[in-house]
């Protein structure tokens, strides 16, 4: 049995001293984890559009090659849009990191098993799609190493973080999409229409 991390602890450690990092979080628990680590103008949380976290982060990373961008999502959301990994690998943005918090469960719908619980290995999928770096992280040391690399330009990077299958208390982020868009754009010096 592989070691498993506490999701809140892992995300907080990953985002410590985040600097100018921009983060797109997939709906459900990863969005709550991001909010629990501290709301930030550079955060964009999804509440729907399942499968879109990685494409949104890709569009942002290509538009802003000067900023590190993180897609933070779960195994269920990633499984719904696996093709996006091939799209990212082909587009090859050097400033994008995809992190999947993998508990092998659909937390929001009753902890039903996902395909990673029965053997799908997302880091190997990412590698096979052409990611130059794809790892599975099981320790806080691994998180610390990943955090240091968020700003390196050798991406795109992919990491699966093995987390404990429990339901952390919900910490709800804003669900007003227009607000989240306007706030993030303003943080980049972009005005409203």
């Amino acid at each position: 049995m592989r070691a498993r991390l506490d999701r809140r602890e892992a995300v907080a450690a990953l985002l410590a001293a985040r600097g100018d990092l921009l983060v797109v979080a997939g709906l459900g628990s990863p969005a709550y984890d991001l909010m629990a680590a501290g709301d930030h103008d550079g955060n964009f949380y999804l509440w729907g559009g399942m499968g879109s976290a990685v494409p949104i982060a890709l569009g942002l990373a290509l538009a802003r090659p000067d900023r590190p961008v993180l897609a933070l999502t779960g195994d269920g959301e990633m499984l719904m849009g696996l093709g996006a990994l091939a799209t990212v690998a082909r587009a090859a943005p050097r400033n994008l990191t995809v992190v999947v918090l993998d508990n092998g469960r659909y937390g929001e719908t009753g902890m039903q098993e996902s395909h990673t619980a029965s053997g799908t290995k997302l880091a190997e999928v990412a590698k096979a799609c052409g990611f130059r770096r794809a790892t599975t992280i099981q320790t806080l040391k691994g998180i610390a190493d990943l955090r240091r690399n968020l700003r390196a330009t050798g991406g795109p990077r992919f990491a699966t973080v093995a987390i404990v299958a429990d339901n952390a208390p919900r910490v709800l982020p804003p669900r007003d999409g227009v607000f989240l868009k306007t706030r993030l754009r303003a943080s980049l010096g972009l005005r409203s229409i």
């Binding site: 797109v24 964009f44 559009g49 499968g51 879109s52 976290a53 990685v54 494409p55 949104i56 982060a57 890709l58 569009g59 942002l60 990373a61 290509l62 538009a63 802003r64 849009g81 093709g83 996006a84 091939a86 799209t87 082909r90 587009a91 868009k181 993030l184 754009r185 980049l188 972009l190």
Partner: peptide
């Protein structure tokens, strides 16, 4: 131009949202 090949069209919706968050027209 950035030309991005998608595996399915729905990726393009998220991609253009991300581009706009970053100030780019797609």
């Amino acid at each position: 131009l950035i030309a991005t090949a998608l595996t399915t069209e729905e990726e393009g919706i998220g991609l253009l949202l991300g581009a706009w968050l970053g100030g780019q027209r797609g």
